[in-house]
Simulated scan of single mutants.
Amino acid sequence: MPPATAIPPEWLRPPDLAAARAAQAALAARVIRQDAHGPVRLLGGVDISSNRFDPEDMVYAAVVVLSLPDLAVVGQAVAAARAAMPYIPGFLGFREVPALLEAWEGLAVKPDLVLVDGHGIAHPRGLGIAAHLGVLLDVPSIGVAKSLLVGAPAWPVGEAPGAEAPILWRGERLGTALRTRRGSRPLYLSVGHRVSEAAAVAWVRRAGAGYRLPEPTRRAHEAANAFRRRRMAAGQAGA
Rank of each mutant, 00 (worst) to 15 (best):
1 M>Y: 03
1 M>F: 08
3 P>Y: 00
4 A>L: 14
5 T>H: 14
5 T>N: 08
7 I>R: 07
11 W>I: 05
12 L>E: 12
20 A>L: 08
20 A>I: 04
21 R>A: 10
22 A>M: 01
23 A>Q: 03
23 A>V: 10
23 A>W: 08
24 Q>C: 04
25 A>V: 07
27 L>G: 11
28 A>Y: 02
30 R>S: 12
33 R>H: 04
33 R>Y: 02
34 Q>T: 15
35 D>G: 11
36 A>H: 14
36 A>F: 05
36 A>E: 14
38 G>E: 07
41 R>H: 14
48 I>W: 06
48 I>K: 00
49 S>Q: 10
49 S>H: 07
56 E>G: 05
61 A>V: 11
62 A>Q: 07
63 V>H: 12
64 V>I: 10
64 V>A: 03
65 V>L: 06
66 L>H: 10
68 L>H: 04
68 L>V: 04
69 P>R: 09
70 D>I: 04
71 L>E: 08
71 L>A: 13
72 A>Y: 00
77 A>V: 12
77 A>N: 08
77 A>I: 10
79 A>G: 11
80 A>L: 10
80 A>N: 06
85 M>L: 15
88 I>H: 00
88 I>L: 15
90 G>I: 08
90 G>L: 05
95 R>D: 07
95 R>T: 02
96 E>D: 11
97 V>C: 06
98 P>T: 05
98 P>M: 04
100 L>N: 01
102 E>Q: 15
102 E>R: 15
105 E>M: 00
106 G>S: 06
111 P>N: 06
113 L>S: 09
117 D>M: 09
118 G>R: 10
121 I>R: 00
122 A>D: 13
122 A>I: 03
124 P>K: 10
129 I>P: 05
129 I>W: 11
132 H>I: 01
134 G>E: 02
135 V>T: 01
137 L>K: 06
137 L>Q: 03
142 I>S: 11
143 G>P: 09
145 A>Y: 12
148 L>R: 13
151 G>F: 04
151 G>S: 04
151 G>H: 10
152 A>N: 05
153 P>H: 09
155 W>D: 13
156 P>C: 05
158 G>A: 14
161 P>S: 07
161 P>F: 03
166 P>Q: 08
172 E>Q: 15
172 E>V: 01
176 T>A: 05
177 A>E: 01
179 R>V: 08
179 R>D: 12
181 R>L: 15
181 R>N: 03
181 R>P: 12
181 R>A: 14
182 R>L: 04
182 R>M: 07
184 S>F: 13
188 Y>H: 09
189 L>V: 07
192 G>M: 02
193 H>I: 03
194 R>C: 10
194 R>K: 15
195 V>Y: 09
196 S>Q: 10
200 A>S: 15
200 A>L: 09
201 V>L: 14
201 V>K: 14
202 A>Y: 00
202 A>V: 02
202 A>W: 04
204 V>E: 03
205 R>G: 06
206 R>F: 13
207 A>N: 06
207 A>P: 11
210 G>Q: 08
211 Y>Q: 11
211 Y>G: 01
215 E>Q: 14
215 E>I: 01
220 A>L: 11
221 H>M: 06
223 A>Y: 11
223 A>E: 10
224 A>T: 05
226 A>D: 13
226 A>Q: 13
231 R>S: 02
233 A>M: 13
234 A>I: 00
234 A>E: 15
239 A>E: 15
239 A>P: 02
